[in-house]
Design a protein around this nucleic acid. Sequence first.
DNA 1: AACTGTGAAACCATTCACAGCA
DNA 2: TGCTGTGAATGGTTTCACAGTT
Lengths: 207, 207
Amino acid sequence: MKKSKIPEVTIMRLSSYSRVLNEALDRGEKIISSKGIATLTGVSPDQVRKDLAYFGEFGVRGIGYNIEGLKSNISKIIGTNRNWKVAIAGLGHLGGSLVSYPGFLRRGFIMAGIFDVKNIGDKYGELYVEHIDNFEKIAKEVGFDLGIIVVPREFAQSVADIMVKSGIKAILNFAPVMLDVPENVEIKNIDLSMFLEMLSYYMALKM
Amino acid sequence: MKKSKIPEVTIMRLSSYSRVLNEALDRGEKIISSKGIATLTGVSPDQVRKDLAYFGEFGVRGIGYNIEGLKSNISKIIGTNRNWKVAIAGLGHLGGSLVSYPGFLRRGFIMAGIFDVKNIGDKYGELYVEHIDNFEKIAKEVGFDLGIIVVPREFAQSVADIMVKSGIKAILNFAPVMLDVPENVEIKNIDLSMFLEMLSYYMALKM
DNA sequence: AACTGTGAAACCATTCACAGCA
DNA sequence: TGCTGTGAATGGTTTCACAGTT
């Protein structure tokens, strides 16, 4: 498993391979081919094999991949063989919905802290909304791995600063701003309207 | 404006350039350089110029770009110089939050229909939840441009079929499945847990 | 026969370097 | 001088083609 010559898209695809492997297991299947994975995820079989080849030889020539085995290998690679503790900041509509997003828990991401500047004490599942000013203190107790920022744009940077100061090593940012974080903190920005605008572009093309 | 030699990432970046141009306008600025756009969006100045060069010559050598003008050019390109009518299917946590996602309306995407199989008649803003079985009929009246699918995985394909049959030309799909739609329908899949897993990969690397 | 793993080729995107212009 | 626009160079990703294995 090499350092970092691996394309980011490969990691994203591994995540989706992992998802379809789970589904195949649920259907009671044992073996799957690169072609099988490919049709279920919408990529080419070559791509599937190349992606996996970055990390090792998981298949058997002439046969395919053992689903259980491949699944556990991919889990090890993308780090979902353990649980990660997630802290979320911002409990507006989107933030509130992410707290209980079933896909997160199912894949090992445990909501461990929810923060805002208002509605302190409100209950979401097992969790109570805490004031963002207590983030660092609570982080010390709980040990968050990963932060999700869903606050309005103008507060996003200061929330990021608090998260970084509290030792969080990766941030998923839904606020439409570039955040300034140290090199060693991974950050991934998601701007939902960007996706709609991409579709808009293709629609406009056809008119 | 050429046909389709343009990278998808370029379109995504145009969308974010557009966002920072609006912000600069709000701050009362008139002129911006590729370097200015670059620092605000986290790409290289060369990249900015290359992206814009796909579509025309919008700048003035030695000076930079007129913000107002560039903004309106980008709007034309990505189709946000008009409004698009959006239909959303699935009013679970995530779906419900998207109905009122401020970023959508701000950028010309108008929620025009919301559908589910339960809680019919519930009110979200100005809209009432309609049964998905009435989608085609309502689509005829309203004329949806774009569909958002936020239903559980197992129902996503049939919802997509309904949308396609009703003349929708682009779909944003949050369900973690590859949907089968005709060539001429644009589809963009977003699997939120994929983003977390990407971060998980980088965290796991460092341990 | 069916399928993986992998170099080599093809393709695509980004960065460089500089000419052209205000 | 400062900045855009762009061909050329570089770097990266995907596809091809086939050797290797069961």
